[in-house]
């Protein structure tokens, strides 16, 4: 499993999550939404965008290909319409 730090759009707490090593950027975003939206921030429709090391990552890219390693930090934002 790959442990990560993340912050979800509108929240102020940095959370921990653990994903499969071959998880995609979209998988990570979906997991982040599951943990935070409706819990700590209102649920909001829209596409999710993951930023890692200052760069927005394509949703179908794997965490490994994006260079995301153990306990790296990613930010997940809600952008645009669904």
């Amino acid at each position: 499993m790959l442990p990560l730090c993340f912050r979800y759009d509108g929240d102020f707490l940095v959370h921990y999550m653990s994903v499969e090593p071959d998880a995609t950027v979209a998988d990570i975003c979906a997991a982040a939404r599951e943990y935070v939206a409706g819990f700590r921030v209102p649920e909001r429709e829209g596409a999710l965008q993951l930023t890692f090391a200052g760069e927005v990552q394509p949703p179908d890219r794997s965490a490994r290909d994006a260079g995301i390693g153990a306990m790296d930090y990613v930010q997940v934002d809600v952008v645009g319409a669904a």
Binding site: L13, V14, G54, Q75
Partner: peptide, 19 residues
């Protein structure tokens, strides 16, 4: 816990900025 509160010294001043 690590907090990132926009507009504070906690560090959340730009999208994607890491702790």
């Amino acid at each position: 816990p690590i907090f990132m509160v926009p507009g504070t010294t906690s560090g959340a001043t730009a999208p994607g900025q890491a702790p």
